[in-house]
Amino acid sequence: MAVPLLTTDDEGESRPASLLIPEGWRATQVYGAVDKALALPAGTTKKSLAKANLKLPNDAEGNPEGYLFPATYPLGENPTPEKLLTAMVDTANKKFTGAPVAAGAQRNALNVYQAVTIASIVQAEAAAKEDMGKVARVIFNRLERGMPLQMDSTINYALGRSTLKTSTKDTKIDSPYNSYQRMGLPPTPIANPGDEAMTAAINPTPGDWLYFVTVKPGDTRFTADYTEHRRNVDEFNRLQQSASKQAGAGAAK
């Protein structure tokens, strides 16, 4: 994803003045961006977690995934990884522990950490902001029915990748993030969600949907009927194969 990570100050100095963290970035991406912004050796920010003393919920067990809130952060005079990570976590705590999120989580029989986890899946799965509430509803409907979530985004997280293609082999990996094999929510968030995804997680759109697939850009189909869902998935696969063939033909020329 091409985003302007850094901005320069008004005097045109080469040192970046701020750091932009986009919605849906994983912690590993945030660490890399901080290293780059502060011109530090790769891996420095991740190593700084031990001394950052971040105010995370107990359920997080020291892992800030989900709590590195997406926003633009000024670097200030003497920026350090610890200062930036603290600013992100403090921003997340202000957002998540306020009345709307805390009450919304409680209304849905969740704690805040679970709501953030759902929001992270919504952020990763929804092709458009207007679909977020529906994706959240699919998650709730599956949890209530004792169905595995079967979200490709959790497999991608386990494998450290981002792709639309998940193979049968992928769905059999041994990981607590394999939501095809494991019941319930993954053990941590899988990304750092923004405001819209959090709103969707605590106010899911009413509906009976259990399945969804983005057949093509702008065309995400939700259904409660498995047969209909398989037809939608078949159409998605046909379009993917067609696009792949066209790309191959273009390369052959």
Rank of each mutant, 00 (worst) to 15 (best):
A2C: 04
V3P: 04
P4R: 14
P4I: 09
L5Q: 11
L5P: 00
L5N: 03
E13Q: 15
S14Q: 14
L20K: 11
I21M: 12
W25I: 10
W25C: 05
A27F: 07
G32K: 13
A33F: 11
D35P: 00
A37D: 14
G43Q: 10
T45S: 05
L49V: 06
K51I: 09
A52P: 08
K55C: 00
G62C: 09
E65K: 00
L68K: 00
F69D: 04
P70L: 12
Y73T: 05
L75W: 09
E77P: 00
P81S: 03
P81K: 00
E82L: 07
L84A: 05
A87S: 15
M88N: 01
K94H: 13
K94S: 11
G98R: 13
V101D: 11
A102W: 11
R107A: 15
A109Y: 09
Q114I: 08
A115D: 02
A115N: 06
T117Q: 02
T117Y: 01
Q123K: 05
Q123S: 08
A124E: 07
A126R: 00
A128R: 10
D131S: 07
V135F: 09
V135L: 06
R137P: 13
N141R: 03
L143G: 04
E144D: 15
L149Y: 03
M151A: 15
M151S: 05
S153P: 00
S153W: 02
I155C: 02
N156H: 02
A158W: 02
A158C: 06
L159K: 03
S162L: 12
T163H: 08
D170F: 01
Q181K: 15
R182M: 14
G184T: 09
T188Y: 08
P189L: 13
M198E: 01
A201V: 04
I202E: 00
N203P: 06
G207P: 10
T214A: 01
T214M: 00
G218N: 06
R221K: 15
R221Q: 12
E228I: 12
V233Q: 07
Q241I: 03
S242D: 03
A251N: 13
K253M: 09
